[in-house]
Simulated assay, not measured.
Amino acid sequence: MASAYERRKDPEAVRRALLDCAASIAASEGLGAVTVAGVSLAAGVTKGALFHHFANKQALVNAMVDGLMQELDTALDTLIAADAVSRGSFTRAYVHAALTMDDTTTRIWSALIGALSTEPQVATQWHAWLAQRLRRHADTDADEILAVVRLAADGAWFTSLSATAAAEVLDLPAIRARLVAMTY
């Protein structure tokens, strides 16, 4: 039995805390601010504990990005399963997910998307994920119009990451509705 002064070892909780803290730092300060020292301090563990779970900062960032993409996969699969029309179902789910994010998710993805041009590994992960999803949904979403809709959603999404631009320029619900209508 652990004493009041002794912490029970829970490796999965430590790993989750490290990933959550890395995502929080990336969301508030940008991906460049994610450091081994900063993440371990925020998670309340030693650098050694971080290195027990992740070989280096890049492994931590890769795991964080993978986790976010798994969350996105789950959200997309839920939306696709609820869609009564198979043609364009991935594109509709993609548009919905891209243009209805809450503030926390938007901040996290903002940091990650900003890293696409500066962090080759993040760009590689994103493009591999998207290519896999497009292959998976080739029978229902390979149409050129659907590709244009996804690209338009990306453009609205990227623009919405700036709070000023989103407030001044975008009516995201109207854009989302118009893009979804184009998928039928």
Rank of each mutant, 00 (worst) to 15 (best):
M1N: 14
M1R: 13
S3K: 07
S3W: 11
A4S: 14
R8L: 11
D10V: 01
D10M: 10
E12Y: 09
A13C: 07
A13D: 03
R15A: 08
R15E: 12
R16A: 14
A17E: 10
L19R: 09
L19W: 01
D20S: 06
A23F: 05
S24A: 10
A26I: 01
A27K: 05
A27C: 05
A27V: 04
G30Q: 09
G30R: 00
A33F: 00
T35Y: 10
V36W: 03
A37F: 02
A37T: 12
A37M: 11
G38P: 02
A42S: 06
A49Y: 11
L50T: 04
L50F: 11
L50V: 09
F51G: 13
H52Q: 05
H53Y: 07
F54K: 00
F54E: 00
A55W: 10
N56K: 07
N56C: 08
A59K: 15
L60D: 02
V61L: 11
V61N: 05
N62D: 15
A63R: 10
M64Y: 02
M64N: 02
V65F: 06
D66I: 04
L68V: 02
L68R: 02
E71A: 13
E71N: 13
L76H: 11
T78M: 11
T78G: 14
T78H: 15
I80C: 06
D83E: 15
R87T: 13
R87D: 13
G88R: 00
T91I: 08
R92T: 03
R92M: 09
R92V: 00
A93T: 09
A98M: 11
M101S: 01
D103S: 15
T106H: 05
T106V: 10
R107Y: 08
R107W: 01
I108G: 00
W109I: 09
W109M: 12
I113R: 07
A115H: 00
T118V: 10
T118C: 05
E119F: 13
E119T: 11
P120H: 11
Q121A: 15
T124A: 13
T124Q: 11
Q125V: 08
Q125F: 03
Q125K: 09
W129V: 06
L130W: 10
L130C: 14
A131G: 14
R136N: 14
R136K: 12
A138L: 08
A138Q: 12
T140P: 10
T140L: 12
A142L: 12
D143K: 10
E144P: 12
E144N: 14
I145A: 15
L146K: 03
R150S: 01
A152N: 05
A152G: 02
G155D: 03
A156S: 07
L161P: 01
T164Y: 11
A165C: 15
A167W: 03
E168M: 07
V169F: 11
V169W: 04
L170W: 04
D171R: 13
L172V: 10
A174L: 05
I175D: 05
L179S: 02
V180Y: 01
M182I: 05
T183M: 07
Y184K: 15
Y184H: 13
